[in-house]
Design a protein around this nucleic acid. Structure first.
Length: 531
RNA sequence: GCGUCCGUAGCUCAAUGGAUAGAGUUUCGGACUUCGGAUCCGACGGUUAUAGGUUCGAGUCCUAUCGGGCGCACCA
C-alpha cells in the first residue's frame, strides 16, 4: 500500500518522498512534508507549493482526496483502492504482507556454549533472532538460521570436571572442594547418572577422562538447549560445530597472508591495521588456539558458503569483539560490510516489584525454561520482541500473568478471539460476508480498515531497521482500535452486518499474521484461567 | 582512563529530521436494557539529563558536561 503510494509519488516528483503518518487521522491516510524541501529550491513558501501540488492530484484513481494543511500534503486513498486491496488480502490470506526479496542471508544467533541450559540473556537474543528470521522469511529472503556450537576449548573441559564433581558429591557421597570456575545446576544430575551407566563409576574419579566425558556430555546439553528453544518455538536450520572446523586451520591461516604473523612463539592477527585497538593472539605458545581462532575459521567458512549478507546476534558483552572479527574477514579477502553484528543487551527481571531471585539449584542464573514455565512462551516472546534489542530491559513477571488489558499479549489475543466469536455468532455464511463490498464506511470503520492493512509496511520496516519491536507496537495499537470499534459499534443484527464482519476479518487476518511472525499462535477463544 | 550503548511522564517503554512528544501502568472519576465489561471513556502526569551548535524544522544529527549499563584477556 505504502509502496504503491511511494512509487506514485517518486514518479511524479522524480525523487524519494518521505511518507509519514498524518498528525490526525481525519487529515488522511498518508502525509508528506515535501513542500518544505521544495520551498528552498523553488524559492516559494511551503504553503503555496503544497496548495498547488494538492490540486495536481485530482484525477488519480488511487487517491480519493489530496489536500494541503500548513505546508503538509495529506493523501486520502480512494475507496476503490482500499476495498480492492482488502478483498485481495482475504482471498489470499497466506500472501498477505509477503514480500519478494531475493537476498540470501545467513543469520547466526544464540550460539550459547553447550555447557549448560540457556539463561534469560540467551533468551532475549534467541527471540530477537527468531523474530528477525520469521520476518525475513515472510519478506521472501532466502535466510538460514544457524547455531554455532563452541564445543572446543576450556569451557568444554570444564563441563567434564563439573560432571565429575557433581557425581563425586552426589553419587559417591564424597566431600569435594569446588574450584572457582565450574558449572553447577540441576541439569548435571541426569548427565552424571547416564555417564556412570555408560562409562562405569570410575569415570567420575579419573581426571584423565574429563575430556572424554565432556565430549560425550555436550550432546546431552545441546539436547537440553534445543528442547528449551523448541518450547519457545525457535528452531535452527543448521548447526556448525567449532570442533569440526580445525581441520581447515592451516589453509585458512595461509589465506590470511599478511594479516597474520609470529612473535614470541605465538601467532597474532594484525587486526590493529584494520581498526582494532591492538593485535590479538590467535595461537598461544603451547599451540592451543584462542577463542578468536575458532571464529576466524568459522567466518571464513561462512563466507566461502557464499551469502549476500551475514547477520550475527551477539550479547552486548561481546561488542569489543566486533572489530577483530571484521578485521579477520578483511584479511581473508572478503567485504566486511557484508557482516552485520546486532547486539542484544542485558535483561533484568522483577517479580511483583522485587528483583527476581535466582535459584541456587540452577547455579545462580535465571534459566530461560523457568521463565517459560512461569509466564508461558508467548509472553516471553512478546516481551523480548517488544523492546529495542540494543537497550537494557527490565520487566516484571507479574505483569505478564494478568488476564486483562495491562497484559499486551492477552489484550491482543482477546481482540482476535472477539472477532472469531462474532463470526461464529453471525448467521451469515462466509460467502455472504465475502460478497459484501467495503465501501461507504463511516470514519471509524475506515480508520480501522486502513490500520489493519498497514501490516505489510510494518513488517518490511521492522526487518529493514532490525527493530522488531515495531511489530508488537503495531499489534497493540491495532487491538486497541478493534476493542474501541467493538465497543462503539454494534455489528450482529445490523443492516451492515456482512460489510462490518468482512472488515473485522481483515483485522483478524492482520492480527493473526502479525502474531505468527512473532512465533505466537492467535487464539480463537479465550479460556479464563483458574487461579 | 579508552571504547561503546543509553538517559523521554512517579514506574516500564514508544516516537523513518517533520504538525500538539505518545502507550501501558499508577492515582482519581465515569460507562453494564450490551455481539465476551477479560472491554471502553475521561482527568492528573513532560523545560525529552544539562549547556551550546547545525537546520525552514531536533527527543532524533554535531560538540562539551553530568549520570548509568556493558566491554577494555594469551576466558569463552
Amino acid at each position: 500500500m505504502k509502496q504503491r503510494v511511494s512509487a506514485l509519488l517518486r514518479e511524479k516528483f522524480g525523487r524519494e518522498v518521505v511518507l509519514e503518518k498524518p498528525r490526525d487521522r481525519s487529515f488522511g491516510h498518508f502525509a508528506t512534508p515535501i513542500a518544505f524541501s521544495l520551498a528552498k529550491e523553488l524559492k516559494q513558501s511551503p504553503m503555496k507549493i503544497a496548495d498547488e501540488l494538492a490540486s495536481s492530484f485530482e484525477d488519480s484513481n488511487v487517491f480519493g482526496k489530496v489536500d494541503s494543511v500548513k505546508g503538509y500534503l495529506n493523501f486520502r486513498l480512494s475507496e476503490d483502492f482500499l476495498s480492492e486491496y482488502a478483498a485481495w488480502a482475504l482471498q489470499n490470506p497466506h500472501e498477505f504482507a509477503k514480500g519478494e526479496k531475493k537476498e540470501k542471508i545467513l543469520l547466526e544467533f544464540v550460539s550459547a556454549n553447550p555447557t549448560g541450559p540457556l539463561h534469560i540473556g540467551h533468551a532475549r537474543g534467541a527471540v530477537y533472532g527468531d523474530t528477525l528470521y520469521r520476518l525475513a522469511k515472510h519478506l521472501g529472503y532466502d535466510i538460514t538460521a544457524e547455531y554455532y556450537v563452541n564445543d572446543a576449548g576450556n569451557q568444554i573441559d570444564l563441563l567434564g570436571l563439573s560432571i565429575q564433581l557433581y557425581g563425586r558429591e552426589n553419587i559417591l557421597k564424597e566431600s569435594v572442594e569446588y574450584p572457582q570456575s565450574y558449572y553447577r545446576g540441576e541439569y548435571l544430575a541426569p548427565l552424571a547418572l547416564e555417564a556412570v551407566e555408560k562409562f562405569g563409576i570410575e569415570i567420575l574419579s579419573d581426571e584423565s577422562r574429563q575430556k572424554e566425558l565432556a565430549i560425550w556430555a555436550k550432546d546431552g546439553v545441546m539436547e537440553i538447549i534445543k528442547r528449551d528453544l523448541g518450547a519457545t518455538n525457535i528452531f535452527f536450520d543448521t548447526f556448525v560445530y567449532e570442533s569440526s572446523l580445525y581441520d581447515d586451520w592451516e589453509r585458512v591461516m595461509a589465506k590470511m597472508g599478511e594479516g597474520i604473523y609470529k612473535k614470541d612463539d605465538k601467532i597474532f592477527i594484525a587486526s590493529s591495521q584494520k581498526g582494532d585497538d591492538s593485535d590479538r593472539v590467535v595461537v598461544r605458545e603451547d599451540g592451543r588456539p584462542t577463542y578468536l581462532a575458532g571464529d576466524i575459521v568459522y567466518h571464513n567458512q561462512k563466507f566461502e558458503r557464499g551469502y549476500d549478507h551475514y547477520i550475527n546476534i551477539w550479547g552486548a558483552d561481546h561488542h569489543g569483539y566486533i572489530a577483530r572479527v571484521k578485521a579477520a574477514v578483511e584479511f581473508l579477502g572478503y567485504d566486511s560490510s557484508k557482516l552485520e553484528v546486532q547486539l542484544s543487551q542485558m535483561v533484568s527481571l522483577l517479580k511483583d516489584g522485587e528483583p527476581y531471585k535466582m535459584s541456587k539449584r540452577a547455579g545462580n542464573v535465571i534459566l530461560m525454561n523457568d521463565i517459560v514455565e512461569e509466564i508461558g512462551a508467548d509472553a516471553l516472546r512478546f516481551i523480548f520482541a517488544s523492546k529495542k534489542s540494543d537497550t537494557a530491559l527490565e520487566f516484571d513477571l507479574a505483569e505478564f500473568k494478568k488476564q486483562d488489558s495491562s497484559n499486551p499479549i492477552f489484550y491482543i489475543q482477546y481482540a482476535h478471539a472477539r472477532i472469531k466469536t462474532l463470526l461464529l455468532k453471525s448467521d451469515l455464511s462466509e460467502e455472504e460476508i465475502m460478497a459484501a463490498t467495503l465501501k461507504n464506511l463511516d470514519e471509524a470503520a475506515d480508520i480501522l480498515m486502513f490500520d489493519a492493512l498497514l501490516l505489510p509496511e510494518i513488517v518490511e520496516d521492522a526487518f529493514a531497521t532490525r527493530q522488531v519491536q515495531k511489530l508488537p507496537e503495531y499489534l497493540k495499537s491495532l487491538a486497541a482500535s478493534l476493542h474501541k470499534f467493538y465497543y462503539d459499534c454494534r455489528i450482529i443484527g445490523t443492516e451492515d452486518e456482512a460489510k462490518l464482519l468482512k472488515l473485522l476479518m481483515i483485522v483478524g487476518l492482520s492480527l493473526k499474521t502479525g502474531l505468527s511472525l512473532m512465533g505466537i499462535a492467535a487464539k480463537d477463544y479465550m479460556s479464563k484461567e483458574e487461579e
